[in-house]
């Protein structure tokens, strides 16, 4: 469970304070599937970075499982990201040199695991996203939809509490988009994985259980 209380975030450009988030209150329960919508510049990426523990809020309270984590060091945040959060990006961000399997194993490299365990877990998730037969292909040999499936498997491999998907269908055509959405919805329903989807697409948003809109640094 993630809870955000009165989160503010400002950037300082040439000594000038530029507020981006202006008091966000947001609660996410286990098993939620939330669409986060908003025009560009509304602060939704910043909010995602804060939820994803990549960025510190300027002020406000962030509670992960009822633990206040504002004071955590970057190493501790890295560990929390590794355990609790899975990222899915618009342009997949798979490492081009690595095979699908190796890409999925990536988060596990930062845990103390044997290579066999890593492979086993990664294989499981690849099967789950329907990529069983393409595990030894490199990203360049896969289609966009297939790459995003691998990316979702990578997000899932560490059994995170939350999956943060930043425009997961933004780079895909309508048909593949729907396949990816079906996959995410299926995960949410079958496994109870909490999912936050940032999107511009009303069609995508309508498939989520809840839609939250952000404008000018505030939720509406």
């Amino acid at each position: 469970m993630i809870e955000l209380n009165n989160i503010h975030k400002s950037y300082f450009l040439a000594g000038q304070e530029e507020p981006v988030l202006k008091g966000i209150n947001f609660k996410m329960n286990d098993g939620d599937m939330i669409a986060l919508m908003g025009p560009s510049g509304s602060g939704k990426s910043t909010l995602m970075n804060i939820i994803g523990l990549l960025d510190h809020p300027t002020s406000g309270i962030y509670k992960l499982n009822n633990t206040e984590i504002a004071s955590f060091e970057s190493d501790q945040l890295a560990e929390l990201r590794n355990r609790y959060i899975g990222f899915v990006f618009q342009s997949f961000f798979l490492l081009p040199r690595l095979t699908a399997l190796q890409n999925v194993m990536l988060p596990l490299l930062y845990r103390n695991m044997t290579r066999e365990e890593m492979k086993k877990l990664a294989m499981e998730k690849l099967i789950k996203v329907g990529m069983k037969d393409l595990t030894h292909h490199k990203p360049s040999q896969l289609s966009g939809g297939q790459q995003q499936r691998v990316a979702i498997a990578r997000a899932l491999v560490g059994d995170p509490k939350v999956i943060l998907a930043d425009e997961p269908t933004g780079a895909l055509d309508a048909k593949t988009s729907q396949e990816v959405m079906d996959l995410l919805i299926g995960l949410n329903q079958a496994e109870g994985t909490t999912i936050v989807v940032v999107t511009h697409d009303e069609d995508v948003a309508s498939q989520c259980k809840k839609v939250t809109r952000i404008r000018d640094g505030r939720l509406i």
Binding site: G52, L54, A78, E79, R83, F87, Y110, R154
Partner: peptide, 16 residues
């Protein structure tokens, strides 16, 4: 850079 970012996002510490 992108790879470094991805690795950090999935849990790599700075020293990693």
């Amino acid at each position: 850079r992108r790879e470094i970012g991805v690795r950090m996002a999935v849990g790599a510490k700075r020293r990693d």
